[in-house]
């Protein structure tokens, strides 16, 4: 009995990366362009009307938020769309017939989601670094949050992909849960500018901690303590990993 099927896990990871890379215009370049449009519109048109952290222009403040938003949405899309397509085409059975374990399956899919999240996030960041006077005070922390966020959202995408039977259900998951939580996570504003009730409500949004912690890596300034952001993000990662492994071990909606 093999302990861990490294070759199998790697093969699935590479296949998932090649899958999104083969349609890179749609999966990498289009999201980068969308984010840069946000930067153009929000950064130039409404920058004067929004208060952010001291000593920062709105565009400087916005870029890390946009990078994180791009990471969150694309890592979610990678696992969710891959799974739903594989279910609809029936080719998920190629993997299910193989001796790949649920853990190996999970690691391969999350790994590919992280690669896509980082690739797209890096694209937005590079433009931001060149176009604006942006410094990364703690690059290690920035990378840690980017990795955590893409792994978390890869996991959320996997849960959505497993539980959805058709594209319509996945679309509802994305439009009514992921997009609102992302937009309300402080990507475009500091929650300190919000009324008290919405500030409290923002603390219930797990995406907020990923955005806030990521931004701290750039400016050493944040809405909540970096320890809290790290703790919540890591806890969320463990929770979503646990949920997915239970779904995969039980074969919910994929082996029933």
């Amino acid at each position: 009995m093999m302990a861990f099927n490294f070759v199998g896990c790697w093969a699935l990871f590479v296949k998932e990366v090649r899958r999104f890379y083969s349609v890179a215009v749609q999966t990498i370049f289009a999201p980068i362009v969308s984010s840069l449009l946000y930067l153009l519109i929000f950064g130039t048109v409404i920058s004067a009307k929004i208060d952010v952290f001291t000593g920062l222009s709105y565009s400087q403040f916005l870029i890390p938020g946009l990078v994180m938003m791009t990471i969150l949405q694309n890592s979610f899309s990678n696992t969710s769309s891959s799974l739903i397509q594989a279910k609809m085409h029936g080719n998920l059975s190629f993997v299910l017939l193989s001796p790949i374990s649920p853990l190996e399956f999970y690691i391969a899919f999350i790994g590919a989601a992280v690669v896509r999240g980082l690739a797209v996030g890096l694209g937005v960041l590079v433009v931001g670094l060149f176009a604006f006077d942006l410094h990364m005070i703690q690059p290690g922390l920035i990378l840690l949050f980017a990795l955590l966020a893409s792994a978390i959202m890869g996991g959320v995408g996997m849960t959505a992909g497993i539980l959805s039977d058709k594209f319509d259900q996945l679309s509802a998951f994305q439009n009514f849960l992921i997009v609102p939580l992302t937009f309300l996570s402080g990507v475009f504003y500091s929650i300190s500018a919000l009324p008290s009730f919405w500030q409290q409500a923002s603390h219930l949004n797990p995406f907020f901690y990923m955005v806030d912690g990521f931004r701290y890596g750039f400016f050493n300034q944040s809405d909540v303590s970096i320890g809290l952001s790290l703790g919540v993000s890591f806890g969320f990662f463990l929770l979503i990993t646990f949920i997915n492994l239970i779904l995969l071990y039980k074969g919910v909606k994929i082996r029933d």
């Binding site: 090649r18 899958r19 029936g90 190629f94």
Partner: peptide, 27 residues
């Protein structure tokens, strides 16, 4: 198992699919 349904993976060529499937089995 050769399944009844004619399933395929639109992202890959025949050769790539065989290599991927071999990889799943650690080969």
């Amino acid at each position: 198992l050769v399944p009844q349904e004619l399933i395929s993976d639109p992202f890959f060529t025949i050769k790539e699919l065989l290599d991927i499937q071999s990889g799943y089995f650690g080969l």
